[in-house]
């Protein structure tokens, strides 16, 4: 269902907006200490005192992950459409334009080729700053194209690339309803083909990863890393609390809990992420 865009970028005035509120000093939500903003940025948006991992945008994530200047963004021609003519308290069309203006991105994902410590990879980063990183058709299509692009094909003498997806998302995007839901099947099916072809997929779970994103590609990694204390789950804590009507245990649905339950391979500090990814790429010979 491809249509040609009627809007152009000229109508969209981007404003750079970090995931962190403005101000020279900020109070860390982890330890309540005051942190100098420059120090936080230099420390990959991790609190130098308590190692609280701040939420970051896709652009910042790519900057942190890729070797300097190596990121080559792809699939940027995709833009969201409103096939359902969805309207809640606000029309989805208006919501999209507002988000596009606010973030300067066309949807909640950045994808492209880059080098990580000198190893080539296909990287997709979900963007929490755009509609809570929710997966609609554009996110699903971008991830699927990225996976297909990275799938090895001996017939074409195409070696393929390791795929790294950094997830942070509220789940499937309600405003695209059934079409969002189908992105779960689409990305999972693409990963099945990638898997058949012997590709390496490293999934990185960051705060928060929930709903339809967790229940599709995010939990399908050959190797699954999670950032410390990231909220990762299928249902949100509030929904669970309403269902079972009792307090949830401390640390429930956090990375360390998932590690204990055997659902992720490693909890990885943000400063080690590049090293750990490079190491797995080397071990798998990709």
């Amino acid at each position: 269902m491809t249509k040609t865009a009627t809007r152009t970028w000229q109508e969209v005035r981007p404003q750079r907006r970090a995931a962190i509120p403005e101000g020279l000093w900020l109070r860390c939500p982890g330890c309540a200490r005051m942190i100098y903003r420059k120090h936080l940025e230099a420390n990959l948006h991790v609190c130098p005192e308590c190692h609280h991992h701040y939420r970051i945008s896709a652009a910042e994530r790519v900057d942190q992950l890729a070797d300097a200047g190596s990121f080559n963004e792809m699939f940027t021609d995709l833009a969201p459409a409103d096939a359902l003519n969805f309207k809640d308290l606000k029309a989805y069309k208006d919501r999209l334009i507002a988000e596009q203006i606010r973030t300067g991105s066309s949807d909640a994902i950045k994808a492209g080729r880059c080098f990580i410590k000198g190893r080539q990879a296909m990287v997709c980063c979900l963007d929490l700053t755009f509609m809570m990183g929710s997966m609609g058709s554009v996110v699903g299509e971008t991830i699927t194209r990225a996976i297909e692009h990275a799938t090895p094909d001996p017939a074409l003498n195409k070696p393929g690339l390791p795929v790294i997806i950094v997830s942070c998302s509220g789940g499937a995007r309600m405003q695209e309803s059934g079409l969002s839901l189908m992105q779960m099947a689409k990305t999972s099916a693409a990963l099945a083909r990638f898997d058949d072809a012997g590709g390496l997929f490293i999934s990185v779970l960051t705060d928060p990863t929930t709903g339809g994103v967790t229940a599709s590609f995010a939990m399908l990694g050959d190797v699954i890393f999670a950032e410390p204390k990231a909220l990762v789950g299928f249902a949100g804590p509030r929904v669970i609390q309403q269902t079972i009507r009792q307090e949830l245990p401390d640390g429930f649905q956090r990375s360390e809990f998932l590690l204990k339950m055997g659902l992720v391979d490693r909890v990885v500090h943000r400063s080690n992420l590049r090293t750990e990814i490079a190491r797995v790429i080397d071990y798998t010979g990709k």
Binding site: T2, A5, S137, M182
Partner: peptide, 9 residues
């Protein structure tokens, strides 16, 4: 694979 709706510039 064909499911979804998007604009393509």
């Amino acid at each position: 694979r064909s499911m979804g709706s998007w604009l393509e510039q």
